[in-house]
Design a protein around this nucleic acid. Sequence first.
DNA 1: CGGAATCCAATGTGATACTG
DNA 2: CAGTATCACATTGGATTCCG
Lengths: 134, 134
Amino acid sequence: MSGTHIGVPSVLAHELPRPVPLDELAHCPVGDVFRRLGDRWSLLLLSLLGTRPHRYNELHRSVEGISQRMLTRTLRSLENDGLVRRQVYPTVPPSVEYSLTPLGGTLLEPLSALADWAVLHAGEMDAARAQHTD
Amino acid sequence: MSGTHIGVPSVLAHELPRPVPLDELAHCPVGDVFRRLGDRWSLLLLSLLGTRPHRYNELHRSVEGISQRMLTRTLRSLENDGLVRRQVYPTVPPSVEYSLTPLGGTLLEPLSALADWAVLHAGEMDAARAQHTD
DNA sequence: CGGAATCCAATGTGATACTG
DNA sequence: CAGTATCACATTGGATTCCG
């Protein structure tokens, strides 16, 4: 399997040992994954599920702003991608628990890094936006 | 400034020293930032710009799939958020260079982590999706 | 070259109502 | 409780045209 895409991690490292053909970044898995995760809710839902399993309505309340439709759709999509597990407990009334799969768990670390960045730099983004009269 | 939001980084760390009110994750800056970056192109464009500055048509070719409209809109949005700088060189024909601002540069590390994850685990996602007849 | 403007189609998103 | 169904609206994407 010679490289049809960038071969190894740290493709975006600041100091690259050698110039990697990054123009192909959009063609390699990175583009795919970013496109799947690049919607309004996926990142947030994954983060939430990363803290602990959640039930459906619990997510619905926590995310706030998401519609039932998009909550269901996004969860199904993430489930489809093997990142989220949907566990149905046949109680009455029914209870459904969503949690990260092992694969989803591995995504939690990079996601945490992004969340940490958000906490640290959200203010600067707000300030920048204020300047642009947004 | 007592915590109106989660106070410190690593909010999503697997082993939390104490139970943080993560239900408020959607209300804290994380939700905002994830929402801004959570679109089809922002993550990819930032990653691309993280490798080196790019010109407009260069981005248009590299991202492949993006329309002029969305490329311009997304770049403006990122510029507005203080993540991307637009530098016009009054040559003839005109040349415009997009690059990361210092703030945008700080985002590059978490973004790299995500890109690395993508390279490592894209195959597993594909496999999962295949099982679900997607 | 680097856009902006316009039109149009496709998809995303949300509110509401309804169901097992 | 955990969704589905339906409709209405917003956003996105593509293609084309035009401009400095």
